[in-house]
Design a protein around this nucleic acid. Sequence first.
DNA 1: GACCCTCTCTTACACCGTAAGGATCCGTGC
DNA 2: GCACGGATCCTTACGGTGTAAGAGAGGGTC
Lengths: 207, 207
Amino acid sequence: MTNKRVGLTLDKVLEAALEVVDRDGIEKLSMRRLGAELGVEAMTLYHYLPNKAALLDGLVERVVAAVRPSFDGPAGEWPQHLRAFAVAFRDELLRHPGVIVLIATRPARSPAALKAVEDTAAALGRAGIAPLQALRIVNSVATFVIGHCLAEAATTPGHPEQVTDDVLDLATFPTLAAAVEAGLGTPADHQARFDLALDALLPGLCH
Amino acid sequence: MTNKRVGLTLDKVLEAALEVVDRDGIEKLSMRRLGAELGVEAMTLYHYLPNKAALLDGLVERVVAAVRPSFDGPAGEWPQHLRAFAVAFRDELLRHPGVIVLIATRPARSPAALKAVEDTAAALGRAGIAPLQALRIVNSVATFVIGHCLAEAATTPGHPEQVTDDVLDLATFPTLAAAVEAGLGTPADHQARFDLALDALLPGLCH
DNA sequence: GACCCTCTCTTACACCGTAAGGATCCGTGC
DNA sequence: GCACGGATCCTTACGGTGTAAGAGAGGGTC
């Protein structure tokens, strides 16, 4: 109709898509809605993307690329390196809850993501760990964070139905009820669970 | 058209749905297709289910209920209990790869699932662990298994594009290339990674 | 037979991803 | 100047989705 140039860019498209997902959830991200968000018809987006799968892949890449672990200790202390990565990864995932399932589902294979993995694994290699074992360690930490964040985001405030759902039957589920009473499912609990498991996993991975 | 009674049941519907997912993948599960599978129109299914979400929840419940950890050691050795649960859970998830993402996304809140959690947590409680801590431990193991299986199923043969994708550039990703050469991404590697992380996690959770 | 409840179907609506092709704009070469 | 060509945007259309609304058939009970 209007046919006015909007000055679109793949980057702008992805940014708008991430905005939609963060605001309305992943299930509300459609080509038509994203187009409307950008003041453009849905089909216009296909000038920047071959299909919707590429859009989702772009979101994954964008979020993964934003993970910036900050650890400036000596290169030899790779457990701390892994911990910094895990913490930074979780922080970024929780910033974009709707994208977590995408990350869990379509592993990032972009050069940037592969480079991050390669660098971390190479650091382990310099500590005398064989490549296969190094990648198992890195992947273990990554999948742990993803699994944790999926659970955390699924029971985080704003999401439908908490663990503390309806009244938990004290008689049939006493332990569960007591745990909910003690704070199960709260943000602090998620943080504590993350720390608990990470502190268990990391030392163990250094056999 | 035919309007013949088929003798449908919620159980039969769920079973057929699981069959479709196992055979064709979760994205091919639609009400119309499921109806066709059962010799019925799509809308007929709504006599057994309020909506599609309930169908997916039913699938989750069905798969979760099939997890039957077998450990007959003394009740006190709860780390072995948790290990048996983790192994049985993974086995069942890998039997239904299409359902994993559902399980990761919509936590099971059925009485049966809650009872399984309650029982495990209660066992930890008998070992002197506080309810909140017990549930953190149980949840840590569960989310770990889910995260691992998501990654495993996403790179399992039959799924699109392996890690060993195109030729991995030996120059830019030497560690990665070496790991792939050594068997990264094979079923044996996934098993090894699962064992590695589980052996790291469990002793650590017993602080 | 009359009734009612259970089961099934038909129709319809609003949404989805995207294939195909037309319209407009703009930079470049003549 | 002007024509051309590619980049950008739109329109239309097709087959798919979940599901709301209501019609109609089957079988059990009075």
